[in-house]
Design a protein around this nucleic acid. Structure first.
Lengths: 242, 242
DNA sequence: GCCGAGGGTTGACCGAAATCAATGCTTTGG
DNA sequence: CCAAAGCATTGATTTCGGTCAACCCTCGGC
């Protein structure tokens, strides 16, 4: 099977240029002209949790689509304090347009599968096809909105509100093919308690206590530390503090 | 004087398409083809502090360049808790590509002068000239980096570190024509103590106390509540916590 | 002149989350 | 099987920044 066939048969939008509905997961309109040029030089790979994908101030020579799993974007202070500044889910795009270096670290939070493209090829096609740049621009705007929304959570919500907001974010992004307005949800937490704390600017003990409280209040159930069930999403939303 | 002459004589880059050095303030290479099309329909205006420029979930029908002054971008929770999620300085760009509504509020923090363009005109030219979209994309990437950098400050720095980081950010952005590596700095704070607190996710009393401490330690001087002098920038940097 | 509003500073006290510490539960590997 | 490591929970105590309150200064209006 060629790489291109592989991509087509997977049904996953890989650098899909013609599809507006990137958040629905399903993608019916791959543009063969652009895709072929990239697919020929693309490669897919599987990454284990904890593996670094992009290092702060290191050269980045490829762009990737997240096909499955979750990638965490982090920044650190020199004394080790860490902040997760973003999470990338399928089918998000990973890479730094117009710059050799990235100001952030990217690390696989779960097992991640990627479809990567040489940076030079992507940028060549971006010049020829404004639609590609347009799509990347739109993703960047979505990431900017998400970053600012998250700043409100990190800065102005209390610990209970932070944890509830986090669960809601995961429920809505871990599998974007499911209806974001669904009344209930089941999902695996893609992050450890330590990671959740680094995302929310809390300590892991605080995260643990707040999860315990949500469990005691009957809002969530947790099995095997990772598998979460939310029967009534609106009760969870009420805990997010508006 | 026509608007176009006005813009040219002002020396300020207004939707400048050909100039890479937007952070230097000076701009020698306005592209007449693109600029003229916009300048004909542009208008300049002066905004008083506190005036709302973009309301959350309101339609936005224009794009603007900040010519002078500072615009604060805010998000609020329903109970009134507020977070400043970004500051726009000259010659930043204000507006929401590809969307009618903006998920944030924008408000003049100081007296602000703007050069505005009808949304439709900008988007028409963006279609004809990929360079315009390219420039807006680059600004968005810079804003995304800034937002993520700020998330680290809001989430992981202590109150003293936050206030020091804030002063550094202002010193480096309030007038981008000055050397960012300068050993000393003098500038007017564009925000009240309340605004600074909303930016740093602190209370205004805490901001006040930390400023007092920096003053007592001889790192800054403050006159008239607003005018700040930093004799030794590296001493301020040491207080930012790495 | 007086008053009131807006912005700023400082002090006393309080509380939410951090810190320190003990313990349990899985998973992996010898 | 047991040991060790990684992850998670829970309790006791501390602390940083929040809260409440008093007071100052400046400016603009009557």
């Amino acid at each position: 099977m060629t790489v291109q066939q592989d991509i087509h048969s997977s049904g996953i939008p890989v650098l899909c240029l013609s599809c507006e509905a990137r958040h629905r997961g399903a993608c019916g309109a791959l543009d063969p002209d652009h895709l072929v040029g990239l697919a020929k030089t693309s490669w897919r790979h599987k990454i284990e949790p904890g593996v670094k994908l992009i290092g702060d101030a290191e050269a980045v020579d490829s762009y990737s689509n997240v096909l499955s799993g979750v990638v965490k974007l982090t920044k650190s202070l020199s004394d080790g304090r860490q902040q997760i500044v973003g999470l990338q889910f399928a089918p998000d795009f990973l890479g730094r347009p117009f710059k050799v270096e990235s100001p952030i670290n990217a690390e696989a939070a779960t097992v991640v599968s990627l479809c990567s493209f040489p940076k030079a090829a992507v940028e060549r096609i971006m010049k020829e096809a404004p639609e590609l740049e347009h799509r990347l621009f739109k993703q960047t705007l979505i990431e900017l909105d998400a970053a600012r929304e998250w700043m409100v959570t990190v800065g102005r919500r209390t610990a209970p509100e932070k944890v509830a907001s986090f669960l809601l974010t995961i429920a809505r992004n871990i599998d974007r093919t499911v209806d974001p307005a669904a009344r209930s949800a089941r999902f695996d937490l893609p992050l450890t308690r330590v990671d959740i704390a680094d995302f929310l600017a809390l300590r892991f003990e605080t995260v643990s206590r707040q999860l315990t409280r949500l469990r005691a209040d009957g809002i969530i159930r947790i099995e095997n530390n990772r598998h979460v069930t939310v029967d009534n999403m609106s009760r969870l939303e009420q805990r997010c503090g508006g």
